[in-house]
């Protein structure tokens, strides 16, 4: 059982980590479990793959998001860490050491949207993206 706190959808559920799916889901608030973390662009960006689950714990889809370690990207990173309950309660000198390897398995509450785009074949298509990380 994983407790994700005061999600708009639910507070407690059981996760069923089945094979990752690549399905388009409705916009809304979901639980997102970190399934993989990798560094990109000379270690300045971190690519995170999430399993997105509904309130029953069923994995609905997978979705990628990236975090920048630069000052301009720190606000999003802090929201993610807070949502995934990865921020220490009493940070020393307001500074914390982040170990992205420890993120695997953590659960955040995410606001997911559907966005239109043009795929490589030049055809209109839709995909899910994470708009924001909500407080757990």
């Amino acid at each position: 059982m994983l407790n994700i706190g005061k999600s708009k959808r639910s507070t407690t559920f059981t996760l069923d980590l089945t094979d990752a799916l690549d399905e388009l889901i409705d916009p809304g608030t979901y639980a997102a479990i970190v399934s993989a973390v990798e560094a990109i662009r000379d270690d300045t960006k971190i690519l995170v793959t999430f399993h997105v689950a509904d309130e029953t714990g069923e994995i609905l889809t997978t979705i990628n998001d990236s975090f920048s370690k630069t000052p301009s990207g720190s606000r999003k990173l802090k929201h993610f860490l807070a949502s995934a309950q990865l921020l220490p309660a009493d940070p020393k000198d307001n500074k914390i050491v982040i170990d992205p390897n420890a993120w695997v398995g953590a659960t955040a509450v995410v606001n997911i949207i559907v966005t239109d785009y043009t795929n490589r074949a030049g055809e209109p298509a839709q995909k899910n993206e994470i708009l924001s990380y909500e407080k757990a």
């Binding site: 560094a39 270690d43 000052p71 720190s74 921020l87 914390i96 050491v97 982040i98 390897n101």
Partner: peptide, 22 residues
């Protein structure tokens, strides 16, 4: 899990939130 190349720990300054420079 195999540790990917370049993935390492780093320090995050929690007080730098609103100080976006040009």
């Amino acid at each position: 899990m195999k540790k990917p190349k370049g993935l390492s720990s780093f320090t995050l300054d929690l007080s730098s939130d609103d100080l976006l420079t040009s």
